[in-house]
Design a protein around this nucleic acid. Sequence first.
DNA 1: CGATTTCTGCAAACCGCTTGCAAATCCTGC
DNA 2: GCAGGATTTGCAAGCGGTTTGCAGAAATCG
Lengths: 129, 129
Amino acid sequence: MPRKPLISAAMLDLMARREHHAWTLEDLHAALAEHGAAANFSTVFRAAEKLAADGLVFKLLLEDGRARFELAEAHHDHLHCTECDELVPVPCVIGGGQASALEAETGVAIQTHQVIFEGLCPACLGARR
Amino acid sequence: MPRKPLISAAMLDLMARREHHAWTLEDLHAALAEHGAAANFSTVFRAAEKLAADGLVFKLLLEDGRARFELAEAHHDHLHCTECDELVPVPCVIGGGQASALEAETGVAIQTHQVIFEGLCPACLGARR
DNA sequence: CGATTTCTGCAAACCGCTTGCAAATCCTGC
DNA sequence: GCAGGATTTGCAAGCGGTTTGCAGAAATCG
């Protein structure tokens, strides 16, 4: 039987606490170190990749070219705040109806989707007033 | 008065022919060479960046970490075909109503959005049958 | 305890994008 | 036409984040 993947476990644990929403590898690397589970960067990378491959976490790329990881739970979309650069989760706006309408209209087959809004998060919007 | 930006012009020209939809820098670089407007890669890069900054073209990043450029015309979304890897334009499914509903619900301010569907393009879907 | 299997760390490679600098090019005003 | 001035272009090197090869460490099973 194989060894236990310590880092992956620590990583899931970390993410489950939701102190943060979308984790970059750097975030994970730093956070793991703080929680006494320090690990090499490539180890963090591989653990994250593995979890993504296993479907436990989602990996998504932002305009800054950095990958973000988050727990794969109920599907939701994101708002990228142009002010504080935070990636805020928002409920999904694309229902099955819209997907099938689009399929009928264009002749494609949709499996998944990903929406990224650009704008202001509640905090930054509030601060503007 | 400044000189004429030759490559930018050739690039816009190329894109306007719509032989292709979303261009990577490599695509542009190769296509320009074929059309007798060969240029250095960094020149292509800079021209594309400039056009994007001027709002003439849109720049978007895909999961493969490569930037794509396309003419900034009527807003539309995309379907990334998981089979042939093509990026197919599809009409936008997010109306203003949905945006404002989301704004009211979550307290954010939306400026833009970008949707990427994953699935099969019409060609690949057809080939599957 | 030993074999087997996997995870981990380290260092180096990679990839696509970016940038600094000097030379080439074009427009304008004379 | 031609000097002056503003930019683009090519070249080569640099950069950030990710990815990989390899050897050593750790854990489970028998």
